[in-house]
Structure formats: C-alpha cells, structure tokens
C-alpha cells in the first residue's frame, strides 16, 4: 500500500484544494490517518473508492470521538518595565525604569470538537487500513459533517449510531434517526460530559463511584421530600 504521504499527494492531485493533513499516530500500531476538510470530503471519498491504484472499496468501521474543550495553561516569559528606586549618589533616591523578566501563566481554552473516524480497506487489492478523520467546528451548535453513506453504504447504520451516541449531524444521510436509544431520548450518551440520569438502585456493596451516586440520590430524595 502507498504511505499516507503518497495518498495525500494523490488526493491533492485529484481533488484540488482538498486540504488534507496527515495525523501521525505515535503508538506501535503506526496506523496514521488523514484529516479531511468536510467541504471536500465527499469528493475525496469517491476518489479513494474509484482510483484503481487505491481502490478503497470497503468501509470497515465508522465511529465518533469526543474531544472536550481543553484548558491549556502555559508559562510564558514576558518582559515588563518596572520602576524601581535605586540608591543614588550622596544618599539620594533615584527613580529608574528597568526591564524585568517575569513568568506569567496564561490560560486559554482550546475548543473541543466531535470527530468522525473512518477505517477503509480494499477488498480488490487487499490492503489497508487507511484512517480518515473529520472534525466538527465545535461541540454545541456547529456539529454537521458530510455523510459518506452515498459513497459507502456500510456507513448507513454506523453513522446513525454516531449521530445517536455523539450527536454529529451527517448531512446527506438518507435516514438519520436515533438507532440504539429511543426516539424521544434527548442527550448523547457517549459524550464525555454526559450526566447519567438518577436511576439509582439499591446496591449493598456500594463504594467509590457507586457510593457517590447513591449519596447523590439520597440527598436528592431528601430535598424533594422537604
């Protein structure tokens, strides 16, 4: 199989302005991936499937990943001008402006996103996997990604599942409904910040997380009784 860099070059030759980036995987599996621009994803997918040298005709796995907002604290050195009093000649005091280097912690929030991951193989040429990834703009309102179901039918049920559990809206999917949860269900259970409903059931061996849930349940129950 071609390396990811070669595949990237082939994609860029075929789909101008595709904007593909290589995401390296540091683990021993060395399954590197390509991040696609959502706007060109369909064209790239069709190229990957139909190009005779790549022929990724088999979409094995589709899944979502939730990347939370990350607060990143960085230590930065900044030079500031400080006024200092220094001893001048003959006991006078002088005001002087000096540069001082201070360390400051700056915090900024790296916005999180929802990611869809596709694992492609080729049945015709028996190679693979090629990993494709796409990211949504954020986790709240801009969660659309193009559906790859028109290219690979295998994505039909799996994209429905990603929609159901992560809340990525696949535009162009012919039948985007909840699949595992019931239709009236509101939240997206696989997200990292999902709060479980209080479906507490008595457990005699409660400790750690289960105990916390039990205590929360009891305090809530008491609150409602008062």
């Amino acid at each position: 199989m071609k390396t990811v860099e070669e595949i990237k070059a082939a994609i860029e030759a075929a789909v101008p302005g595709a904007g593909v980036t290589v995401v390296l995987n540091p683990s021993p599996s060395a399954q590197h991936s390509l991040r696609l621009e959502p706007a060109h994803a369909l064209a790239v997918a069709a190229f990957l499937r139909d190009d005779p040298e790549l022929a990724f005709d088999y979409l094995s796995n589709v899944t979502g990943v939730d990347w939370l907002d990350k607060e990143i604290a960085e230590k930065v050195k900044v030079t500031r001008q400080v006024t200092k009093t220094v001893d001048g000649p003959e006991g006078t005091k002088l005001e002087q402006v000096v540069d001082e280097i201070v360390e400051e912690t700056r915090k900024h929030v790296e916005p999180g996103s929802l990611e869809a991951v596709y694992h492609l193989y080729s049945v015709a040429l028996r190679h693979g996997p090629l990993v494709l990834r796409m990211r949504t703009v954020n986790r709240t309102d801009k969660v659309e990604l193009p559906s790859l179901t028109p290219v690979w039918r295998a994505a039909e049920l799996q994209e429905r599942e990603v929609f159901d559990l992560y809340g990525i809206v696949f535009t162009g999917h012919p039948d985007l409904r909840r699949i595992l949860m019931w239709d009236e269900f509101k939240d997206y259970p696989m997200r990292k910040d999902y709060v479980e409903p209080d479906d507490y059931e008595y457990e005699p061996t409660a400790h750690d997380a289960v105990l916390k849930r039990a205590q929360e349940h009891r305090s809530r129950e008491q609150g409602s009784r008062d």
């Binding site: 005699p204 061996t205 409660a206 400790h207 750690d208 997380a209 289960v210």
Partner: peptide, 11 residues
C-alpha cells in the same frame, strides 16, 4: 480485588 473487580461488587 475491590478496586479491580469490574462491576464493583466487593466491599
């Protein structure tokens, strides 16, 4: 064992 038990049924 209490910590490693997957369904946390040891106390």
């Amino acid at each position: 064992c209490e910590k490693e038990c997957p369904p946390k049924c040891i106390y």
